[in-house]
Amino acid sequence: MLGAQLALNAVALGAAYALVAIGFVLVLNATTAVNFAHGESVVAGGFAAVALTGALAMLLPAGNAIPGIVLLPGVLLLTALLGLAIAALAYLPIRNRPPVSVFVTTIAFGIIVTNGLNAAFGAAPRAAPALLGTGTIEFLGVTASRQSLAIIATAVVLIGALAFVLQRTQLGRQFRACAQDPEMARALGIRLTRITLLAFALGTAFAGAAGLLLAHQFFVTPSDGAGLILKAYIAVVIGGWGSLRGATIGAMLIAFFEVGVASISSQPLAEGLLYVAVLLVLLVRPDGIFGEPQRLRA
């Protein structure tokens, strides 16, 4: 019973991590840019939820709890705008420079977001409301937390919609063509800047959604970005650079690892072992576990 509950928690955590990792890969695939501000985008999503809760609470009569799911469209919108800002300020002006330049500008953007949030909200942890209320439901003899189930359902809907777009639509093919040879994509009439902006908006909105999902149980502090980008990064490395499916698998593995180790030991140990595992994985497979760099597959 306990095992099943732990597994459900791990799947929920993995689903949230998967949103982060997938958002990261989206930007990566459409632009080849590595967005180091992505962790801060998750944090921004969490604080967007906190801020929206505060704003709605003023409109509603006191005592009415606001379900987090109501906040989702607002969080998606706000973080999509943040994504557009990252693209416009930290990527588009230097898109033709060596990739390291983009690493540095997005790190700079992350610093701005972290410290801006820190100044506005303070350094203390904040919590977002649960998606569909707290408590548990009995399901096939298993006691499941409502929040975990809601996280999984939300992530499945978002990821499913995205997978459909990328695999079945012209837009998805255009995304991938732009990643592989942007100049040639333009020379085929694909509007590269539009695709780039869209990728940053979508990718950052996915990170923002994850921020809302995570900020109930795990709270959110302005300085959480570095750890989150690392997990997204690790998921992408494990799953193969540029692979959405791989990123999802990678995110699940990380979540199971974390929940598993934390349940028998402590959270810092889980995190530390995760970083050791990354170094070991890279030692054995410099291209990731499933990765074949040539194959950019949705």
């Binding site: 093919r173 063509a177 592989q180």
Partner: peptide, 9 residues
């Protein structure tokens, strides 16, 4: 020149 097909598509 050089074809420039999208290698991964």
């Amino acid at each position: 020149e050089g074809r420039r097909v999208f290698p991964g598509l």
